[in-house]
Computed example of a mutant assay.
Amino acid sequence: MNGHTNGANGAAGARVLSPGIFAPIPTFFAPDTEDLDLESFAAHVVRLAKANVRPLVAGSMGEAVHLTHAERTALIQTARRALDDAGFADMPIVAGTGTGSTRETVELCHAAAAAGADFVIVITSGYFAGALTRDALRAYFVEVADKSPLPVIVYNYPGASGGLDLDSDLITELAETCPNLCGVKLTCGNVGKLTRICATVSEPGFAAAHPRKNPRAPFLVLGGFADFILPSAFVNAHGAIIGLANVAPHACARLFALSAAALADPSVLPEAQRLQGIVARGDFTIAKASIAGTKALLERLYGYGGAPRRPLLPTAPAAVQALWEHPHVQELVAAERALCGKQ
């Protein structure tokens, strides 16, 4: 995690995919019409950027499956404009482009590039999960990577792709043979799988043996939950893409920084362990409330959040209150406020 960028040095003026914390940004909607609330979206992207958390637009937390192609484009354009205007022109945008078919996924990759995204993340197609053999899954990512104008992150999320769960052998094979793949997000939560993949792609010789098509886009191994950021540092993973970073961006970014620092300075480890515990407990509790619960917490914290797009329903007021008062959530909020200077 600390410096393991597989040989990417970047180029002047170019955005680089580097280790760190990424947040799948929620898509906010007007309460009566369900139209995009781009003002709140832009404000949230900038809020997270100030905490050194990078945006992933139109991902699972962003309800991508409920968005039209035009809405995806509008979100990417809004995020890019907001970042540029706030002085974060060097911060990259990752856009979710995975859909049911290979053809439409490739189409969305091109649309994301035209809208201003820098990298894309592609979930395994799961509607016909029972018919997708290992060969079909391999062919899907090979073709998408080959045809996408942007480097592609593989998104392994069995819960949203019909139970399909890519194993470490297939992911490692894809990393070795597809130069336009730039990483994997493991929302399977399998730390053993993460360790096995890192044992190959985080080795010093990997970049020379398997160079990337874009040298600014090394192959990163990213967790999908906040509860193993510290352990993953010690197997040379590269951070995480986590919904919790929407609620507690400073705490998540600080945990990543401490985890990286602990590799070289064991004296930082106790503080990293303490914060990991706070973040892990908060993640465990908030994740059970899903998208609606995260949005409800954002409403409490920042004054925007709103409801998901139907058929998802908002969290009932009593459940929101119980979530807010939960000791794990209050502990996380206190840590976040202390780190960002707000008591």
Rank of each mutant, 00 (worst) to 15 (best):
G341F: 12
A287L: 02
A58P: 10
A70R: 14
V184R: 00
F29P: 08
L275H: 04
I21M: 01
A51G: 00
P211I: 15
D167V: 11
G62I: 07
A111H: 12
Q273M: 13
L244N: 00
C178F: 06
H328M: 01
V154I: 15
F41K: 05
T200S: 15
A14Y: 12
V144L: 02
A49H: 10
V94D: 09
E143M: 00
I291E: 01
P308N: 05
V154T: 02
E336F: 12
F256W: 14
V142R: 13
L48V: 02
F141K: 00
A89F: 04
D283W: 08
T27F: 07
A95N: 03
I242K: 09
T200K: 11
N214F: 14
T172N: 05
A253C: 05
G239E: 03
N52R: 13
A79D: 00
G224E: 04
I123S: 08
G239D: 11
Q273W: 02
G126R: 04
C340H: 05
S161G: 00
L83N: 03
I123L: 06
A30F: 05
V333A: 08
P249I: 10
P218H: 14
G3H: 03
A14C: 12
S18C: 05
T33D: 10
R216W: 03
L339I: 04
A217D: 03
L298D: 05
A42W: 04
I21K: 06
S259G: 11
Y140A: 00
S125G: 12
C340L: 10
A334C: 06
V144Q: 02
V122L: 07
P317D: 12
L323Q: 08
V152E: 07
A287G: 06
T195R: 15
H69W: 01
V268M: 09
T285W: 04
R47D: 03
D265G: 06
G306C: 08
T124N: 10
A43D: 14
Q276H: 07
V184G: 02
H4P: 00
G192Y: 13
A199T: 03
P31M: 07
C188S: 15
Y140S: 01
S202R: 06
P218L: 13
P308K: 13
Q330Y: 10
F141W: 07
L181D: 14
D167T: 12
T294N: 09
R15C: 09
D135E: 14
N236H: 13
Y302G: 02
A287M: 00
V201F: 07
H66A: 09
S267H: 08
T5A: 14
A139W: 09
Y302E: 13
G163L: 11
A136T: 11
V106F: 08
